[in-house]
C-alpha cells in the first residue's frame, strides 16, 4: 500500500506520520506542498502542525497550496484522504468535509490524552476495529468543531460523525468535551466516507514508550482495510 504525506511550511507532525505509516507497512512518500502532482497513492495524509503559522484562519493558506488541487481531485474521485489536527483544519477549509474548527472554548491550548468513541464503522478507516473506544492524543488550540444547523442535520442524517470525545467507557457527555465541539465531535467524514478529518493524533500512540498503543490498532486496521 502506498501513502503520501503532504508537508506544508509549518507542518510538524509530518515525520511522525511517516514513521507511523511505515511501521505498519505503508510505502510512504513525503510530498512538498508546492508540487503539482501527487505520487500514485492509496492514502493521502495531511499532517498536524501550524501550516503558514496559522495565519488568517488555521489551514486557510495551506488549503490553497498548489498540491491541494491534486489532493481535492484525488478525494473527489474516491481516493482516501485523512487530515489530522491541522490537516483536519485544512480539510474543512477546502470544503472536502463540512464545518469549521473554532478556537477552543476556554481559550487554552490543549495537550493531553483523550478517549474517543467510534461512531461509525461502515467505512475503510474504522471497519473491523474491535474496540469501541480509543485512547488518543490531542494537541490543539482550534479544535472546537462548529457547523450550521442545516449542516449538522445533514452530517447526522448521513452518519458522517466518525468519532466523539467520551470517557474511557464510551460515555459521550459534555464534561468529556475538551474544546467545546458541537456534539463532542472529534472527527468527521465527507458524505462518501473516503475523506476523514480528526483532531486526535493516532501517530502519537504507536509504541509503548509513547503514552499508549491505540494508534497502532488504528493503523494496523487501516492498512488491512485498504488491501
Amino acid at each position: 500500500m502506498k501513502s503520501s504525506v503532504i508537508t506544508f511550511p509549518g507542518s510538524n507532525c509530518d515525520r511522525d506520520m511517516d514513521v507511523a505509516l511505515k511501521k505498519f507497512g505503508f510505502k510512504n512518500k513525503m510530498v512538498w506542498h508546492a508540487d503539482a502532482e501527487l505520487p500514485k497513492s492509496d492514502l493521502v495524509v495531511l499532517p498536524g502542525g501550524f501550516s503558514y503559522g496559522d495565519y488568517l484562519r488555521c489551514g486557510s493558506m495551506a488549503s490553497k497550496s498548489k498540491i491541494m488541487q491534486s489532493v481535492i481531485n484525488f478525494a473527489n474521485s474516491g481516493g482516501m484522504v485523512m487530515g489530522i489536527c491541522n490537516g483536519f483544519q485544512i480539510l474543512v477549509e477546502t470544503g472536502l468535509v463540512p464545518g469549521v474548527l473554532l478556537r477552543n472554548k476556554y481559550l487554552e491550548f490543549i495537550c493531553k490524552n483523550v478517549f474517543v468513541k467510534i461512531k461509525d464503522k461502515k467505512n475503510k478507516y474504522f471497519k473491523n476495529v474491535d474496540n469501541e473506544v480509543l485512547e488518543l492524543h490531542i494537541a490543539h488550540n482550534e479544535g472546537n468543531y462548529f457547523c450550521t444547523k442545516d449542516q449538522l442535520k445533514e452530517i447526522e442524517d448521513n452518519n458522517q460523525i466518525a468519532i466523539n470525545y467520551c470517557d474511557e467507557n464510551g460515555k459521550i457527555e459534555d464534561r468529556f468535551n475538551p474544546n467545546g465541539s458541537i456534539k463532542n465531535i472529534a472527527g468527521i467524514f465527507n458524505k462518501e466516507k473516503n475523506v476523514l478529518g480528526m483532531m486526535p493524533h493516532p501517530e502519537r500512540m504507536i509504541d509503548t514508550s509513547l503514552s499508549g498503543e491505540d494508534g497502532s490498532l488504528f493503523f494496523k486496521n487501516l492498512i488491512n482495510n485498504l488491501k
Binding site: 488568517l56 484562519r57 486557510s60 490553497k64 450550521t148 449542516q151
Partner: peptide
Amino acid sequence: KLLANLVI
C-alpha cells in the same frame, strides 16, 4: 475564496 469563511 480566502479572506472569510462563510460558514462562520
